[in-house]
Simulated assay, not measured.
Amino acid sequence: MSTYPNVAETKELIKQLVSIPSPSGNTIKVIEFVENYLQNLNVNTTRNRKGGLIATLPGANTKEHRMLTAHVDTLGAMVKEVKSNGRLKLDLIGGFRYNSIEGEYCEIHTAKGAILTGTILMHQTSVHVYRDAGDAKRNQTNMEVRIDAKAENEEEIRALGIEVGDFVSFDPRVQITDNGYIKSRHLDDKASVGILLQLIKRVKEDGIMLPYTTHFLISNNEEIGYGGNSNITPETVEYLAVDMGAMGDGQSTDEYTVSICVKDGSGPYHLGLRKHLVELAEANNIGYKLDIYPYYSSDASAAIHAGHDIIHGLIGPGIDSSHAFERTHEESLNHTEKLLYHYIQSNIVTY
């Protein structure tokens, strides 16, 4: 039996995932990547009408099911306006601030399939021209996309095929360091997707019979609030979202353990499932932190809000600088993957 988790393999898979542009609303290519990965493992998959992917591993108990979810959709933007100066005004997709994308390289994905590159800048960037270059607000009015093409007015931009509603994706700038860090945009939540794919691979390669039929939803609309709120079988008892743990002042989450969320902006997660996850972590020497994320919601909370009668929980690797220049460490990836490995082989909670 090979060593598990194989963190080098997990990091490489995450690198591949974050390198595929997939802002919410434009996730076809990354779903195809995940679908091909699972089909190569002979895992049955289906797509829902929203474009998400569902993989199912049969278990000994077919009357009670589990579902785990992670999302491949990311933050991004759309073209809001083709400006008279030959640049683009943006409308944001997901919950982040303009200052977090200032100076970022980007791609504009036209409706006809062309991809053009550009840079997101303040209109008042040049300090040699604009006295308020440092003080002007970073907002929709002042920030724009400079396209890498000879186009100096609205007509020339539209001649390139760019139009309102075209998606804009951000350069992930992914790097893996020699001392175990992976830093990139969109670790939320492609780090967790990579972990789930590695988990499924382990189950298939080792011929593990799970105690319950287990579904894995790779959702594609989480950043806009409704990715994981459907396609939950009536037999599903437990629903575990695998998403990032948020770090900052007052938080206990770090980059070296698995974060178990007890409450977020939607309210507390199921107490029994939380206790079960803690017990599994302590029994298997898995580093964990309990935490509350004040401005956060997950696919599990979306499922609860949609009216599903489920036990819901949330865990994930600790991610620094969420929705901006994100980073985590292989130790956090390892602990998250180990906890999930033991969780899917454990009994459903009864309290």
Rank of each mutant, 00 (worst) to 15 (best):
Y4P: 03
P5K: 06
A8P: 02
T10R: 01
K11P: 01
G25F: 04
G25Q: 04
V34P: 02
L38A: 09
Q39I: 13
L41G: 09
N42R: 01
G52P: 01
L57N: 01
G59C: 06
K63C: 06
H65M: 09
R66F: 02
M67E: 06
A70I: 07
M78R: 14
V79E: 12
V82T: 09
K83F: 04
N85W: 02
G86C: 10
L88R: 00
R97Y: 14
Y98L: 12
I101G: 07
I101F: 10
G103L: 08
E107R: 11
H109S: 04
T110I: 02
G113E: 06
G113L: 11
L116F: 15
Q124T: 14
S126A: 15
H128R: 08
V129S: 12
D132T: 14
N139F: 11
T141C: 12
M143G: 09
M143D: 08
D148P: 02
K150W: 12
E156K: 07
I157F: 06
V164M: 11
P172V: 13
T177N: 08
D178Q: 12
N179D: 14
G180K: 00
Y181D: 12
I182L: 03
R185M: 13
K190L: 13
L197V: 08
Q198F: 03
K201T: 13
R202F: 10
D206E: 15
D206G: 02
I208M: 04
I208H: 02
M209K: 15
T213N: 09
T213K: 11
H215M: 09
F216W: 06
G227N: 09
G227L: 07
N229D: 14
S230P: 03
I232P: 08
T233C: 08
T233Q: 13
V237G: 04
Y239H: 05
G245P: 04
A246P: 01
D249Y: 09
D249A: 13
S252R: 07
E255P: 03
E255V: 08
C261G: 10
C261R: 08
V262I: 15
V262M: 13
G265I: 05
G265M: 03
H270M: 07
H270D: 11
H270W: 10
R274V: 15
L277K: 00
A281K: 01
A283N: 14
N285C: 09
D291T: 02
I292R: 10
I292G: 05
Y293C: 02
A302Y: 04
H308C: 06
I311G: 03
I311F: 12
L314W: 04
P317G: 01
D320E: 11
A324K: 01
A324V: 06
F325T: 09
E326F: 03
H329Q: 04
S332A: 08
K338E: 00
L339D: 01
Y343Q: 04
Q345N: 12
S346H: 05
N347F: 01
Y351Q: 14
